[in-house]
Amino acid sequence: MKVIGLTGGIASGKSTVSALLKEYGFAVVDADVASRTAVAKGTDGLKEVEKVFGEEAVINGEMNRPYVGQLIFNDIEKREALNRIIHPRVRDIMEYEKQQALKSGRHVIMDIPLLFENHLEYTVDEVWVVYVDEESQLERLMKRNNLSYDAAAARIHSQLSIEEKKKRAHIIIDNSGNLSELEQQVKKVVEQFFERNQKK
Rank of each mutant, 00 (worst) to 15 (best):
V130Q: 11
A154Q: 15
E95C: 01
S176Y: 08
R144W: 14
I172F: 07
I162S: 01
I109L: 08
G8F: 06
I156A: 03
D125L: 04
Y24Q: 05
D125W: 09
N178W: 12
L179N: 02
E55M: 14
R168I: 00
S148F: 05
L21Q: 06
L115R: 04
E117F: 08
E164W: 02
F193M: 07
E48P: 03
I4T: 08
N118F: 08
E77H: 12
I162F: 02
R106W: 00
N64P: 05
L21T: 03
N118I: 06
N83L: 01
G8S: 04
A152N: 14
R36E: 01
E23Q: 09
K98N: 04
E121I: 12
M142L: 13
E183M: 12
A152D: 15
R196L: 10
E164H: 04
Q198T: 07
E191L: 11
V29F: 06
V28L: 08
E80C: 09
E195G: 08
Q70Y: 04
E181G: 14
F193V: 07
A31Y: 06
K187H: 15
K166G: 01
E195V: 10
D111I: 04
T7A: 06
M1E: 10
S176C: 14
R84H: 07
I162R: 00
A19R: 07
I162V: 11
G42S: 03
I86H: 00
T37S: 09
E195C: 07
Q159I: 03
K167M: 14
A27F: 05
I172T: 12
R196Y: 04
N145K: 13
D174P: 09
A81W: 10
V90N: 03
S15R: 05
I109A: 05
L21F: 11
T43H: 12
K41Y: 12
K167L: 13
Q192R: 14
N197Q: 13
E134C: 08
A153I: 15
F73C: 03
I156V: 04
K143E: 11
H170K: 08
Q185T: 14
R84L: 07
F194E: 15
